[in-house]
Amino acid sequence: MCPVMQLESVEKVYRMGEVFLAALRGISISFQEGEMTAIIGPSGSGKSTAMHILGCLDRPTSGQYLLEGKNVAKLGDDELSDIRNRKIGFIFQAFNLIPHLTVVENTELPLFYMGVRRKDRHRMSMEAIEMVGLKERWHHSPAELSGGERQRCAIARAIVHEPRVILADEPTGNLDTKTGKDILAILNRLHDQGRTLLVVTHDNDLANQLDRRVTLRDGQIEDDSRKVPV
């Protein structure tokens, strides 16, 4: 079966003035449909860069990125925007909700750029909001929500358009342990529904709960291990 995402000798070099900084040094890895993978590594290991490239927010300096078998490494800005819009859902550590929009309006964002009509948008968003357990607060603004609720809203936004891949960047990083567990439970539920998830974290406990664990160090893959089914 063709993997959902596949990186082939991907390198990413940043230029900072006179200095060139290699964030990724030839990474080759693939992710199968329905996998839930943790990407861990210390800061500076390149995990954020990997996530940005996998999320089509950035392009590799060299190498190939096959998304659903199609090389997207050389696509233009508009094409990448469209891919993000249709195939990818982001969950961020800082939640990244737009403060002057309500929960439902934040959730609707990907659908808005897909050109879905308002009525349908509202219906689909409400379904996603219900799924993350935020139904009672759909018309609240982010400022009125707790951290856990904000992250639920962000998850609703990441799944509302039924993307192929969900990318989570430290999704529990800003939350207390209990709330973090709740969020992880939601992510697990998404996994059970057969979605492909990538969770970037430096939390070992969290990483150990997922089926697959990729460790990055200095822009290279140090370890790639799968949990043996019990």
């Binding site: 999320g55 927010l57 800005d77 508009d78 925007s81 469209d82 993000r84 819009n85 249709r86 982001f90 990244n96 909700l97 737009i98 403060p99 964002l109 990907p110 808005f112 750029y113 897909m114 936004r157």
Partner: peptide, 16 residues
């Protein structure tokens, strides 16, 4: 700025 980043992540094109 952050709102712009969020919208871009959600698939907004530059033109949007």
């Amino acid at each position: 700025t952050r709102e712009i980043g969020i919208r871009r992540a959600c698939g907004a094109r530059q033109s949007n």
